[in-house]
Simulated scan of single mutants.
Amino acid sequence: MPPGVYRPQTDTGLLRRALRRERITTRTEVLDLGTGSGALAVEAARLGARVTAVDISWRALAAAWCNGLLNGHVVKVRHGDLSAAVPGRRFDLVVTNPPYVPAPGESRPRGRARAWDAGTDGRLLIDRICAAAPAVLSPAGRLLIVHSHLSGVEETLARLHAGGLRAEVVERTRLPFGPVLRSRLGWLRERGLVGGRTTEELVVIRAEHA
């Protein structure tokens, strides 16, 4: 876990649980978008899949590749911006834990914050993933995406449906705000995103071609 790379947390575990319910064989092609440490890529490889891990951070890709080797698996890594790193390819399973935390200001996040900050509505990358999903999934492919209720679960479902995908929430959990959300609690309340609560709900959405 080099400095600046997102450490596996509750959202990673939630997505891992959903991943393990999918049918994965030695012929399954898996794409891990925004791989971070490679925890999900390594889990998919452990289940037998052929895995490609994508990240815009070179440091994250190095971590994912090394963590694959440390666990006895080869994870292919590709540097780039989401599915643009694998042009023209389709996958049987796409897993992604994108940045989804609403953040003050309109500028793109820098440094460590790139792992969680996602614009004022938390959808900076989520909307792009929803738009790209139909083209990057094989005909029987599935998408698993995790994010917070703060970034609009119904909006994600609607966008996936609009793209011709059947989508549903398959995992949920609620947990107390972590340090990042606590540090901007006043701003979140001003925007009407949290009310008086200090907990957030994380969900995993599963989508496939209708």
Rank of each mutant, 00 (worst) to 15 (best):
L19C: 12
N71E: 03
G80I: 01
C130T: 03
V5E: 06
G13N: 09
D55M: 04
H161F: 00
V86D: 09
T28F: 04
N67I: 03
V194P: 13
T26G: 08
G68Q: 07
A85E: 08
P99M: 04
A49H: 07
V54Q: 01
A44Y: 12
D11W: 05
L82R: 02
Q9I: 01
R184A: 03
T25Q: 04
L40A: 08
R159H: 02
A115Y: 01
R23Q: 05
L165V: 07
D92G: 14
S57F: 02
H149K: 01
A53T: 12
I205Q: 03
A44L: 13
T173C: 14
W187P: 01
R191Y: 14
A115Q: 01
E190N: 07
R206A: 14
E43Y: 05
T12R: 09
A140V: 08
R123K: 05
R16H: 10
R191M: 11
R112Y: 08
L137Q: 08
P109W: 15
H73S: 14
H147E: 00
A85Q: 13
G119R: 00
E208D: 08
G141M: 09
S37F: 09
S107N: 13
W65A: 06
L61C: 08
R159G: 01
V204K: 03
R7W: 09
R110W: 00
G141A: 15
V136F: 02
D32Y: 10
R20H: 12
D32Q: 07
L40I: 06
G38Y: 02
R90D: 00
P104C: 04
R182S: 11
E171P: 12
T156E: 03
L144A: 11
I56C: 02
R46Q: 13
G38L: 04
A62S: 12
A210H: 05
A62T: 08
L150P: 15
L82C: 14
N71G: 09
G192Y: 10
L93F: 09
R172F: 03
L185F: 04
E106T: 08
L181P: 15
L193C: 07
P102Y: 02
P3G: 14
P104Y: 13
E155P: 00
S107D: 15
P99E: 07
P139M: 14
A62C: 11
I129H: 06
D55F: 02
P3M: 02
R110H: 06
A39V: 09
V153K: 04
G152N: 07
L19N: 10
V74W: 04
T199C: 03
T156A: 12
G163D: 02
R112F: 10
P109T: 11
A63Y: 03
E154Y: 01
R110S: 15
H73W: 07
D81Q: 06
